[in-house]
Nucleic acid binder design. Structure first.
Length: 818
RNA sequence: GCCGGAGUGGCGGAAUUGGUAUACGCGCACGACUCAAAAUCGUGUGGAGCAAUCCUUGAGGGUUCGAGUCCCUCCUCCGGCACCA
C-alpha cells in the first residue's frame, strides 16, 4: 500500500534527527575541506515571530549552505539574536516585565520557528547581543575605539526623537523622521558619545573595490559617504583683524563671481561680526531657525530666507568687498558652515540674490548658451587676469595662486557625519566609561568588564536627556579606576547597531571568555564568504560593521581588511495585493500558519525560492504554495510507485539513454542556477524534470536499478530546497547516512547529446517552421532541408534568395527579395 | 534635482546574453474518476480570425539577415539620497 505524502509525518521527525546527530555543526580548523561562511543577518527577536522576509533570507541562505555542504565544504551557517532595542523595551514598560524575560521568550519562539522551517543553522554557535558574556566584548571593542581616539564626547546638536526620547544617528533619520516610529525629529544639544567614522570615509569607499557587492549597494554607500573634492578659501572680515571666514567650494574658479557670503545661523562667527545695527534682526532670525523642525528646514521648495549681518568680507582674489548674510539654506554641519555665494552659477545662490536684490555677475560663458542649467564649464570672463581661461583650468590655478598667500588649500569634504553613539535608554549595552572629576572620562579596566546592565524598577525614558540608569545611584556612583576617588558611571547606552557591528566574528569562536575571538580561529574562518541581507541596512548596519572591521584590522585585531567578501540584498516580500505588509493593515503572512495548514515546510521553502529572483521585490502569492506542494506530492508519488515496482520488477534490459539525459540535463541546469543564485529557475527546472520523468515512466517501467539511480540523483538535487522529503526518500531507498552529507551529483556531457536537433527556419527573419535535423548533417544538407519545408516554400516561392544565414544548432534564415 | 533598478499573458515570472518570445507555476476552461464535491490525472490556454495569416515584450525612432535583449528620444513605476556649496 502506497504511503501518501504528508509533511506532518516526516518533517518533525527529521528535524529531531538532525538536531540529535549535530548534523550541521561546523568544524574549526578542518584542513581537508574548503571552508565556506554563509551569513544571513541575525534578526531582532520581536514578539510577532518570523515574517516572510526572514523566511526568504534564511531559506535562500539555507539552500546555499546545504548545497555547499554537499559539494564538500566545511560550512559555517550560524544564527543569533540582535536583541537590544526599543520594541522590547516598550513592551517591557507596557507589560511591566523585565526586557530580559521578554527577550528570552521571543528568542525561544524564533528558534522554534526556524527549526520548523528545516533551517540548517549551527545552533552551537548562537550569539545573543544582550547576553553579558557577549556584550562584555562589545564594550571591550568600544574601548579600543576610545583608546585610539575614535570615540569622543562632544556637546553637539543632534537629532532627537521626542517620542522615543533618544538621540539618533544621522543614518536613523529618514526624510526628517525617526526611521522606527516616523516621528519628526528635533534638534537637541546634548553631551554625546560619537564614533569617528569620518576618519574612515575614504577607506570605506576604497574598500568597496575589493569586495563583491552589487553596484546598487556599493553606489548607495558611496553616495551616502558623499565625497567631494574642492578647496577651502579664506576671506578676511572687514574691521575684524585676524578673523577669517573659511568657506568650502567645489568651484573656486567662480571666485570672481562672488557677490555675497552666507553663514549658517549657528556659525560661531555670527555673534562676533554682527554689527550693532543688525543685532536684533540677526538674533531674531537665529531664534526662528531653532524653532523649525528638520522637515521644515529640509524642504527645498521653501522660499529662501536670511538676514544681513552688517559685516563685509574681502574676496581674497579680487579684493572686492561683499556683504555677509546668514541664512538657513546653509547647513552648519557640512563643510565650514559658510559659503561664498555665486548667484550667476548656483541655483540656490541665484534664488537668494533674486529675493534680496543682490548683484549677479557671470564669470564664465557657458559652452552651450541654450543650456540654462547652473554649473558646467566655459571660458572665463569678468575675472581680471584670469579672463579667457577655461573654468576647468582655473579651478586648480586659482587655488595655487591663493595658496601662496596662505589663503587657500585643497580640501575633501564628506556628507558622512560622525556616528552619534549615545542612546538615552535602558535596554542597551552600558557605555563602559567612568567620569572622574580629576581624570575625566576613564575606561573601565578590562578585568571589570562587562559593565552589567543593572536591574531597575522602571525602564521609561526620561525627558531630561538622561537615560533611566542615571537614577540607579548605587550603580552610578563608583570609584575612579585611576585614583580611587568617588566617580560616576556613564549612564548612556549604546545604539542597537553596536552589537551587530561585530557579531559575525563571534560566530568564529562563540564561547570564548578570554577574547572576543581567538586569532587562530579568525584566521581559519577568515571573512564571510557570502552575506545575505536587507537593502535597508546598506547605509546602516552594513556600513557600520565595515567601519568597525576596518578599524579592527588597523588595530591588528582581525586578519582581513573587509568583513564580507560578497554581499547580496534580497528583495522585499509584499502582500499579495502589492502593498507593504504591515501589522496595522493586517496583511502580514505568517509562515508557520502555512506550514500548519498542511503544506509543510518544504513546500513553503520551495514556494519562496520559486517566487521571483532573490533580489527582486515581489508580492507574495498565497495560492502559489499549492503549486510547489503539488510538485512535491507528484514526485513523492513517483518514488512510491517506483519502490513498490522495484519489489517485483528488477528488469534492467530496457534502454535508459533518455532517462539519463533527463537526469543529467537537470543536474547541469540546477547546479548552474545555484551558482548564479537563480533559485526560481532552479525550482522550475526541478518541476520540468519531474514532468519529464512522468513521461519517461510510460516508456520505461519503474522499478529498475536505472530508475533507482535516477531517483537518487534527482533527490539530491531536491535536497537543498526540500530537505525533509529528500531525507525521507533517501531513507526509504535504503541509502546510507544523511542525504545532506551525500555528494552533489556531477553531470556528464556524454549523456546530454541527442542524435537530432530542432532548428528554426526563418524567412526574412520571421519564424516559419521548425525542422528536425540529424546531428551529423552538413550545412548544405540543412539548408536544402530548410528550403524544402512547406511553410518556407510558401514564402520563398517566386522570389530570389539574396542570402542564407546558418547558425549551427539554432536556426536558418533565408533572406529573399521579390 | 542626483544615483540605482524595472516595465513581457488574467497573475508571479522565463528567455542559452543578438537567434523559435511567453519556460515553470498560479488562475481559468473542458474532459476522466465520483451519486456529488474535494483531491488526483489528462487536454487546452497571448490577442484577432473559420482558416491561410496577421499583430504582440511601456511609446516612438535607429542599427541588423534577425532586437524583449544593442543605440537614441520619451513615458511610467519602485528603491536610495536630497538646500551637501
Amino acid at each position: 500500500m502506497m504511503k501518501r505524502y504528508n509533511p506532518k509525518d516526516i518533517e518533525p521527525k527529521w528535524q529531531q534527527q538532525w538536531s540529535d546527530s549535530n548534523l550541521y555543526q561546523a568544524v574549526d580548523f578542518d584542513k581537508k575541506r574548503p571552508k565556506f561562511v554563509m551569513l544571513t543577518e541575525f534578526p531582532y527577536p520581536s514578539g510577532d515571530g518570523l515574517h516572510l522576509g526572514h523566511v526568504r533570507e534564511y531559506t535562500l541562505g539555507d539552500i546555499i549552505a546545504r548545497h555547499k555542504r554537499m559539494t564538500g565544504h566545511n560550512v559555517l551557517y550560524p544564527m543569533g539574536w540582535d536583541a537590544f532595542g526599543l520594541p522590547t523595551e516598550n513592551y517591557a514598560i507596557k507589560m511591566k516585565v523585565p526586557p530580559q524575560q521578554v527577550t528570552k521568550n521571543n528568542v525561544a519562539n524564533f528558534q522554534e520557528q526556524m527549526v520548523s522551517l528545516g533551517l540548517s543553522f549551527d545552533w552551537s554557535r548562537t550569539v545573543n547581543t544582550t547576553d553579558p558574556s557577549y556584550y562584555k566584548w562589545t564594550q571591550w571593542l568600544f574601548l579600543q575605539f576610545f583608546k585610539a581616539g575614535l570615540a569622543y564626547q562632544d556637546e553637539i546638536a543632534i537629532n532627537w526623537c521626542p517620542k522615543c526620547k533618544t538621540g539618533l544617528a544621522n543614518e536613523e533619520v529618514v526624510n526628517g523622521k525617526h526611521e522606527r516610529c516616523d516621528t519628526p525629529v528635533e534638534k537637541k544639544t546634548l553631551q554625546q558619545w560619537v564614533l569617528k567614522i569620518t576618519d574612515y570615509a575614504d577607506r570605506l569607499i576604497r574598500g568597496l573595490e575589493t569586495v563583491d557587492y552589487p553596484s546598487r549597494i556599493a553606489d548607495q554607500q558611496i553616495n551616502w559617504i558623499g565625497r567631494s573634492k574642492g578647496a577651502e578659501l579664506d576671506f578676511k572680515v572687514e574691521g575684524h583683524e585676524g578673523e577669517y571666514l573659511k568657506v568650502f567650494t567645489t568651484r573656486p574658479d567662480t571666485l570672481w563671481g562672488v557677490t555675497f557670503m552666507v553663514l549658517a545661523p549657528e556659525h560661531p562667527l555670527v555673534d562676533i561680526i554682527t554689527s550693532s545695527a543688525q543685532r536684533i534682526d540677526v538674533d531674531e532670525y537665529k531664534k526662528l531657525t531653532q524653532s523649525k523642525t528638520e522637515i521644515e528646514r529640509q524642504n527645498t521648495d521653501r522660499e529662501k530666507t536670511g538676514v544681513f549681518t552688517g559685516a563685509y568680507a574681502i574676496n581674497p582674489s579680487s579684493n572686492e568687498k561683499v556683504p555677509i548674510w546668514i541664512a538657513d539654506y546653509v547647513l552648519s554641519g557640512y563643510g565650514t558652515g559658510a559659503i561664498m555665494a555665486v548667484p550667476a552659477h548656483d541655483e540656490r545662490d541665484f534664488e537668494f540674490a533674486s529675493k534680496f536684490s543682490l548683484p549677479i555677475v557671470d564669470v564664465y560663458k557657458k559652452d552651450s548658451p541654450a543650456d540654462n542649467n547652473f554649473g558646467g564649464e566655459g571660458d572665463v570672463i569678468n575675472s581680471g587676469m584670469y579672463d579667457g581661461m577655461r573654468t576647468s583650468d582655473l579651478r586648480e590655478r586659482i587655488v595655487d595662486d591663493l595658496q601662496q598667500k596662505g589663503l587657500a588649500k585643497e580640501r575633501i569634504n564628506y556628507k558622512l557625519r560622525d556616528w552619534i553613539f549615545s542612546r538615552q535608554h535602558y535596554w542597551g549595552e552600558p557605555i563602559p566609561i567612568i567620569h572622574c572629576p580629576d581624570h575625566g572620562a576613564v575606561p573601565v579596566p578590562d578585568d571589570q568588564l562587562p559593565v552589567v546592565l543593572p536591574e531597575v524598577d522602571h525602564y521609561e525614558p526620561t525627558d531630561t536627556g538622561e537615560s533611566p540608569l542615571a537614577e540607579v545611584s548605587e550603580w552610578v556612583n563608583t570609584t575612579c579606576p585611576t585614583c580611587d576617588k568617588p566617580a560616576k558611571r556613564e549612564t548612556d547606552t549604546m545604539p542597537n547597531w553596536a552589537g551587530s557591528s561585530w557579531y559575525y566574528l563571534r560566530y568564529f569562536d562563540a564561547n570564548n571568555d578570554t577574547a572576543f575571538a581567538d586569532m587562530e580561529k579568525l584566521k581559519y574562518w577568515g571573512e564571510v564568504d557570502l552575506y545575505l541581507g536587507g537593502m535597508e541596512h546598506t547605509t546602516l548596519h552594513l556600513l557600520y560593521s565595515r567601519f568597525w572591521h576596518q578599524f579592527f584590522y588597523n588595530q591588528g585585531l582581525v586578519p582581513t581588511p573587509e568583513p564580507y567578501k560578497a554581499r547580496r540584498g534580497q528583495g522585499i516580500v509584499l502582500a499579495t495585493d502589492g502593498s507593504k505588509m504591515s501589522k496595522s493593515k493586517g496583511n502580514v503572512v505568517n509562515p508557520n500558519e502555512i506550514i500548519d495548514q498542511g503544506y509543510g515546510a518544504d513546500a513553503v521553502r520551495m514556494s519562496i525560492a520559486f517566487l521571483a529572483p532573490y533580489d527582486q521585490t515581489t508580492p507574495w502569492n498565497s495560492e502559489g504554495i499549492a503549486g510547489t506542494y503539488r510538485f512535491l506530492q507528484r514526485y513523492w508519488t513517483l518514488v512510491q510507485e517506483h519502490i513498490d515496482a522495484s519489489k517485483v520488477n528488477l528488469d534492467d534490459s530496457v534502454d535508459q539513454v533518455a532517462l539519463k539525459r533527463v537526469t543529467h540535463k537537470a543536474i547541469k541546469r540546477i547546479s548552474e542556477d545555484l551558482h548564479g543564485m537563480n533559485f526560481n529557475t532552479a525550482v522550475a527546472a526541478l518541476m520540468e524534470a519531474v514532468n519529464e520523468l512522468y513521461k519517461q515512466k510510460i516508456e520505461l517501467p519503474l522499478g529498475s536499478p536505472a530508475w533507482t539511480e535516477t531517483i537518487v540523483a534527482f533527490t539530491k538535487l531536491l535536497a537543498p530546497y526540500a530537505p525533509h522529503i529528500a531525507e525521507e526518500i533517501w531513507n526509504q531507498l535504503g541509502q546510507p547516512g544523511s542525504i545532506h552529507n551525500s555528494e552533489w551529483p556531477v553531470h556528464e556531457d556524454k549523456y546530454l547529446a541527442e542524435e537530432t536537433t530542432r532548428m528554426a527556419v526563418q524567412v526574412n527573419g520571421k519564424f516559419r517552421e521548425e525542422i528536425v535535423v540529424d546531428k551529423s548533417a552538413q550545412e548544405s544538407e540543412i539548408l536544402a532541408q530548410a528550403k524544402s519545408a512547406d511553410k518556407v516554400q510558401a514564402h520563398i516561392a517566386g522570389k530570389s534568395i539574396v542570402r542564407e544565414i546558418y547558425v549551427p544548432g539554432r536556426l536558418v534564415n533565408i533572406v529573399v527579395r521579390d
